[in-house]
Amino acid sequence: FTSYHDPKHLVSSSVTLREQLALLKDPGVLRYSQYYSVVFGGYVALALWMTKYYVGEYGMGLNTAAFLAACFSLPGGVLRAFGGYLSDKFGAYKVTWAVMWVCWVCFFLLSYPQTDLVIKTTGGSMSLHIGLNVTLFTILMFTVGVAMAVGKASVFKFVADDYPNNIGAVSGIVGLAGGMGGFLLPIMFGALEDFTGIRSTSFMLLYGTVCVSLIWMHFSFKAKRNG
């Protein structure tokens, strides 16, 4: 038996190194690299950061913190194939757009720091605590993990659709961007926490990166969406 081969994938590439490096200036490649730095780089960074976050923010033991952190990292790793299925069925744009909006909402809620308010009245004072408890926090992180798993597949669906003759080169560039995000974001998380003393600044940073993705996506695909 022989497996099926798409003739388009059998064409030998004559693309030179100079032409491959020129892809770094392509707006589409830069756009997809930014998306992937969010859904893959953010996933890697949070997977490294979550255990420490549970211990510091909620005072949990290391074993419990690691177990709850797995509620984020496990779906983010095993549901990527499901993201590929959705991307094939609904298209890369619709799936990635939905993924970014889910992340936007979740990171907005996760960004709010644990806050204690003291309201003074004539009869005394009243204390009010505002913040996510560990259950809500874990549910939101699980949701983000699922969204990022789907997004990791949908971004590469963009690459396959838009660069069928340069899949290898573009995939390498986009993958590099994701890896760099996973390397740099934990460092930035720590720097922001040291500077502000607020742990949830890590989510504020991710919220900002998702805002960039949504704005970039809106204007980049506006003509295609209205056409």
Rank of each mutant, 00 (worst) to 15 (best):
F1Q: 15
F1G: 07
T2D: 00
Y4T: 06
K8T: 12
K8I: 09
K8S: 09
L10E: 13
R18H: 14
L21E: 04
A22S: 13
L23T: 13
L23G: 13
L23F: 12
K25H: 12
D26I: 11
P27I: 11
V29Q: 15
L30R: 13
R31E: 07
S33Y: 02
S33Q: 06
Q34E: 03
Y35K: 00
Y35W: 08
Y35N: 03
Y36R: 10
S37I: 01
S37N: 03
S37W: 00
A45Q: 13
A45W: 12
L46F: 15
L48T: 04
W49N: 15
T51H: 06
V55N: 05
G56N: 14
M60V: 04
L62D: 05
L62Y: 01
N63Q: 12
N63A: 15
A66H: 01
A69I: 00
A70I: 01
S73T: 02
S73R: 01
L74K: 00
G76W: 01
R80Q: 05
A81T: 09
F82Q: 06
G83F: 01
K89R: 15
F90V: 10
K94S: 11
T96V: 08
T96S: 07
W97D: 08
W97R: 08
M100V: 11
M100D: 09
V102F: 02
V102M: 01
V105L: 02
V105A: 12
V105G: 08
C106H: 05
L109R: 09
S111W: 14
Y112E: 04
D116F: 07
L117V: 14
V118T: 14
V118H: 09
V118D: 06
K120M: 06
G123T: 01
S125Y: 10
M126P: 03
S127N: 00
L128Y: 13
L128E: 02
H129W: 02
L132A: 02
T135C: 03
F137T: 12
F137E: 10
L140F: 09
L140M: 03
T143N: 08
G145T: 03
V146G: 06
A149W: 00
K152L: 09
A153H: 09
V155N: 13
F156S: 02
F156M: 08
K157D: 15
F158V: 13
A160S: 13
A160G: 07
A160T: 11
A160N: 10
D161N: 12
D162K: 01
Y163H: 04
P164T: 04
I167R: 15
G168Q: 04
G172F: 10
I173E: 14
A177L: 12
A177H: 07
G178P: 13
G178A: 14
G178H: 15
G179C: 11
G181D: 08
F183Y: 05
L184P: 09
L184R: 05
I187K: 00
I187F: 05
M188D: 01
M188F: 13
A191Y: 04
A191P: 04
E193N: 14
T196D: 12
G197K: 06
I198R: 07
I198T: 14
I198H: 13
R199E: 09
S202V: 11
L206A: 10
G208I: 11
V212Y: 14
S213P: 14
L214G: 08
I215P: 01
F219L: 05
S220V: 03
F221G: 08
A223N: 05
A223M: 03
K224G: 02
K224N: 12
R225A: 14
N226D: 15
